[in-house]
């Protein structure tokens, strides 16, 4: 671990000293020993503040959207999930590859529930790889939340999601962190459209939950950031996992963000799609 941290600090320092990059995004320490926060390194000496341990969990790719027209490329450390997030945003035409300097760091898996379903620990897109790739262990049940909810009755499912979304405070942290939720304007901010009110009610919260899931749905990269940032700790991956499960049942193996070229499920069609409507 320490070896890898030294390599990361060295790489960040080298990139900043050469002037190839404007700044480098990584992980820094917080006052809590078991938490890290995103770190923006602008000077070579900042690289000493870099942290890489089992708590370096936060996704850092979404911060690229805060600087869409940088003077110099932005350096980013990319794990598997960050690289999929970057692929996702490049496919959505939100960031440009030439504005990025990707430092690939094969991840060793973190102590987090969402890392048990990880399918790509090694970065899928990078400029240089800091250390050797290691195979990703066999992931556990990819749809563990959706399967648990599907086992319930219809009334039970409604009761379950009501209980979940009654706790939702509609802070939209899940939207803000999600690499697939990258629209310039979001419908939840546009109250005049009437899709959903501002009030805190069960129906509006449920509708927010379903709509968020459907908007992300086929583009979800399964990083689980939405659950990590949720201040109420809600199991909202259950909604996106259900959509991905259905897509995988309908068209076979489907995964978003593995490259920046393949089309989104809902963005294309196939003449031979399953027709359940009469």
């Amino acid at each position: 671990m320490n070896d890898n941290l030294a390599k990361m600090r060295e790489a960040a320092k080298r990139a900043l000293e050469s002037g190839d990059v404007g700044y480098v995004i990584g992980w820094g320490a917080t006052k809590f020993p078991d938490k890290t926060s995103p770190l923006f390194m602008r000077k070579p000496e900042d690289a000493e503040r870099l942290v890489w341990n089992e708590y370096a969990i936060p996704g850092i790719a979404k911060y690229l959207l805060d600087d869409l027209y940088p003077d110099k490329p932005i350096g980013v450390f990319v794990r598997g999930c960050d690289s999929r997030a970057i692929n996702r945003m490049m496919k959505d035409n939100r960031i440009k590859r030439e504005n990025l300097r990707l430092l690939g760091i094969p991840c060793d898996g973190k102590d987090d529930e969402r890392c048990t379903i990880c399918r790509n620990r090694n970065p899928l897109v990078y400029d240089e790889l800091l250390w050797d790739e290691a195979p990703t262990p066999e992931p556990k049940d990819r749809y563990f939340r959706a399967n648990a909810v599907e086992a319930m009755s219809a009334d039970g499912r409604y009761a379950y999601w009501s209980e979940v979304f009654d706790q939702c405070i509609r802070c939209y942290a899940c939207r803000n962190i999600c690499p697939a939720c990258n629209c310039k304007e979001c419908y939840v901010d546009m109250t005049a459209t009437g899709f959903q009110g501002k009030q805190h009610s069960r129906s509006d919260n449920l509708i927010f939950g379903v709509t968020r899931a459907f908007h992300v749905g086929d583009r979800c990269i399964e990083c689980g950031e939405c659950e990590r940032v949720c201040p109420m700790g809600l199991p909202i991956m259950g909604q996106t996992q259900k959509i991905l499960k259905d897509i995988n049942e309908l068209v076979g193996d489907y995964e978003s963000g593995v490259d920046a070229e393949s089309e989104n499920y809902l963005g294309v069609f196939d003449l031979d799609d399953k027709d359940e409507f009469m």
């Binding site: 959706a146 909810v149 599907e150 219809a154 009334d155 039970g156 499912r157 409604y158 009761a159 999601w161 449920l206 379903v210 899931a213 459907f214 749905g217 086929d218 909604q239 259900k242 959509i243 259905d246 897509i247 309908l250 499920y265 809902l266 069609f269 799609d273 399953k274 027709d275 359940e276 409507f277």
Partner: peptide, 17 residues
């Protein structure tokens, strides 16, 4: 596109009770 979209949406609504 409707077909793809609402095949998913119907299942999602059912899933939500």
């Amino acid at each position: 596109f409707t077909r793809r979209r609402f095949t998913l949406m119907k299942r999602l609504l059912e899933y939500n009770g």
